[in-house]
Computed example of a mutant assay.
Amino acid sequence: MSDEFDDALALQEHSLKVDLTNRKPEGPGPRGYCLECGDEDVGGRRWCSAKCARDWERREVQRLGR
């Protein structure tokens, strides 16, 4: 029979698994160009726009099979 400690531990382990499964891909650091469209005017960022960031993330999630 489990006690409150065992139940809390099981819930914590489950929450960690869910969080790790749902985390967003971090990706590489800035390269001097947009990682999605290749635009060179990104000012030290990884993407030129929020749209490119979302598109890159969507592609990475599909590539990783999540």
Rank of each mutant, 00 (worst) to 15 (best):
W47I: 01
R23N: 07
P30Q: 10
C37L: 12
E57Q: 08
G44I: 04
V18F: 04
C48K: 03
C37Q: 07
L11H: 08
C37H: 07
E4F: 04
C48Y: 06
E13L: 12
G65V: 03
V42Y: 01
G44F: 00
E40L: 07
F5D: 06
L64E: 13
E60K: 14
K24L: 14
L64A: 15
L20A: 03
S15Q: 12
K24H: 09
C37K: 08
F5M: 05
T21E: 09
C48P: 00
T21M: 11
D6M: 11
K24R: 13
C52W: 13
P25D: 13
E60T: 02
V61T: 11
E4Q: 10
C37N: 11
W47T: 00
V42H: 02
C34M: 10
E26F: 03
E57D: 06
S2H: 01
V18P: 01
R59Q: 09
D39W: 00
S49N: 06
H14M: 06
E40Q: 13
A8M: 08
F5P: 01
G44V: 01
K17R: 15
R54M: 02
R45T: 05
P25I: 11
H14I: 00
Y33E: 14
P25N: 11
P30S: 15
D55H: 00
E36W: 15
